[in-house]
């Protein structure tokens, strides 16, 4: 719970809950082709979204004007959120010889349940246009950590408004929750290091902790030994997820989703790492 949320909550109470509809400013006019292509693979699967809202601890009050009661309308934020969760849950090949990590790692990072990866968290949504996502740690013991995803992941004309990038942000913010659980100091620029510096071109940089394929058994991405030899940063987890979507997906993951994931991964790899670039993924052949 942070100050802005609290103000919003008090305001909502004062207006008997009438304010939430007016607050939504994300573009709800449609979805990117990548979102629609993945959507067409499941056609709005009821059993999944009824599972997903619990697994990600989505709360109706946060999503009421964003498709909570219109869950099959892919123009809205909640359907786009669970579309990305569908990709995370089923979309990876889990190839032990080629994938960086397994579905079990990416699910545990993204989902709400308390585990070795992070304490409990819940997923909200924000109209903040200046961020992709945000992790807000709890203050009171009875509070819960919160991951918000923002309009640039939902507005269909924006480059990150696709299921892979949205899922990638679940990883990024989930890894801030991991740092919080283990008391890691990754810098004071929104949980990152000041920049530009080294290979990083923005203010908000990470290190890349290079590791080979198979260095982490599936399910062991959370492990660290307190040194740089066994560790991950938020942008690194995000890039490795995006690379696994691009290069090691299930057979049915559409080309738009794979190509958008590769573009996001390769952009992030050359702009976010002090000791970068990270790996390049996807093929340089156009098709």
């Amino acid at each position: 719970m942070n100050f802005k949320q609290s103000i919003a909550l008090v305001s909502t109470l004062c207006t008997l809950g009438a304010a939430s509809e007016a607050l939504a400013v994300c573009d709800q006019s449609g979805a990117s082709q990548a979102d629609r292509d993945l959507w067409n693979m499941h056609g709005c699967w009821q059993d999944f979204y009824l599972w997903q809202y619990q697994a990600y601890d989505l709360r109706s009050g946060d999503w009421s004007s964003r498709g909570w009661n219109d869950a099959c309308n892919v123009a809205l934020e909640f359907p786009k959120h669970w579309n990305a969760a569908y990709l995370v849950t089923y979309g990876l090949a889990d190839n032990g010889a080629q994938s960086f990590h397994g579905t079990v790692d990416y699910r545990a990072t993204a989902e709400a349940a308390s585990s070795n990866f992070h304490d409990s968290l819940y997923h909200g949504v924000t109209d903040d246009g200046g961020i992709f996502g945000r992790f807000t740690p709890r203050f009171w013991p009875w509070d819960t950590d919160r991951v918000d995803t923002a309009c640039p992941l939902y507005n269909r004309t924006h480059p990150n408004a696709n299921p892979g990038s949205r899922g990638g942000d679940f990883m990024h913010e989930g890894w801030h929750a991991y740092f919080d659980k283990y008391g890691i100091n990754n810098g004071d620029q929104g949980g990152h290091r000041a920049g530009p510096q080294g290979g990083c071109t923005i203010n908000g940089c990470d290190y890349f902790y290079f590791h080979g394929i198979g260095a982490y058994a599936f399910g062991a991405m959370w492990e660290n030994n307190g040194t740089a030899s066994r560790f991950h940063s938020p942008n690194q987890v995000q890039v490795e997820f995006l690379c696994d979507v691009a290069d090691q997906p299930q057979w049915w993951v559409p080309a738009t989703v794979r190509q958008a994931a590769a573009a996001d991964a390769n952009t992030r790899a050359v702009t976010r790492f002090i000791n970068g670039p990270g790996y390049t993924c996807g093929s340089p052949r156009p098709w």
């Binding site: 909550l9 709005c44 709360r59 109706s60 009050g61 009661n69 219109d70 909200g124 919160r146």
Partner: peptide, 13 residues
């Protein structure tokens, strides 16, 4: 919970 963790399930039109 802050937003009501005892949520009603989502539904579709």
């Amino acid at each position: 919970g802050p937003s009501g963790s005892a949520s009603e399930p989502p539904s579709a039109r």
